[in-house]
Design a protein around this nucleic acid. Structure first.
Lengths: 139, 139
DNA sequence: CCTAATCCTTCCCACAATGGGAAGGTCAAT
DNA sequence: ATTGACCTTCCCATTGTGGGAAGGATTAGG
């Protein structure tokens, strides 16, 4: 089948299929006599696998590792679980960072009236010198 | 003062100061006779403001908007609060998305032994056809 | 059989924000 | 005068994705 049919069935855009091939996440697709890439059901299955790992936020190198493990019937499940755990830990770290920022922003917003007046503790805090900020933290 | 002194005092790298100038987040710095950029205390204050907005995850356009509001003594605090609220909402949306992914990954990992055996529900699920996945969801 | 639309190919550009590094000029201390 | 530490601009890389151009192939309608 053509690349656009494979794209539609897998949920991975034609653009990205070519890109994944160019960075060797995928082996070079077989070509028809006219130079068009040709895909079979097993290729679509691989693309669907890739799509799901991508939807779960795995990076390209992680996707590559998962693909290799998937293809290796003899892989120890430990390695797969380790990859997943590392990714979970990374996500949780980023979540904590963002939550911390949200807390800070909420604290700043809380004291801003948000009306026509120009008085704004949010801007005041953003403009405060670091030492002042440190002082405020411990008030 | 030189750019590297301004960088050190503000916590914004010289590289980024030049970049912010090139994209007009900052006005062009004044130059000394030798062509070197020259910064004063008020410039450092602006850079520190930028640094704090950046640390809070604001995008460059948002930083630009906040800077404009900061400079405008007559701004209504409503606009500042609205910007902050929008950013909070955006962060929370992203946090929810990541939390959802974490839940999914935890669920998959839970049933993977993570030992020498090759049996691995994580890979099985990643490889499952979408209909199968939908079915599993409702089991 | 011709034409138009829709494919396909490769190649370049763009994004956001940051860093690395080269080539070349300047300054300060020895 | 030399050396080292600055400064300048310019180019390249990152990550993953899309846009679009130029040119060739195929297909559908007339």
């Amino acid at each position: 089948m053509n690349i656009s049919a494979a794209a539609e069935r897998s949920g991975v855009s034609a653009k990205m299929i070519r890109y994944y091939e160019s960075v060797h996440l995928l082996p070079a697709a077989s070509r028809r006599s006219n130079g068009y890439r040709d895909y079979g059901d097993s290729d679509v299955a691989i693309l669907q696998f890739i799509r799901r790992t991508r939807d779960l936020g795995f990076s390209l190198p992680e996707m590559s590792a998962l693909l290799t493990l998937w293809r290796d019937r003899k892989r120890p499940s430990r390695e797969v679980k380790r990859l997943a755990a590392a990714h979970i830990a990374d996500l949780e770290r980023r979540i904590r960072e963002m939550q911390s920022v949200v807390r800070t922003l909420r604290a700043l917003s809380q004291h801003c009236r948000g009306d026509d007046r120009s008085e704004c503790p949010i801007l005041d805090d953003l403009a405060a010198a670091p030492t002042q900020r440190a002082r405020q933290k411990h008030q």
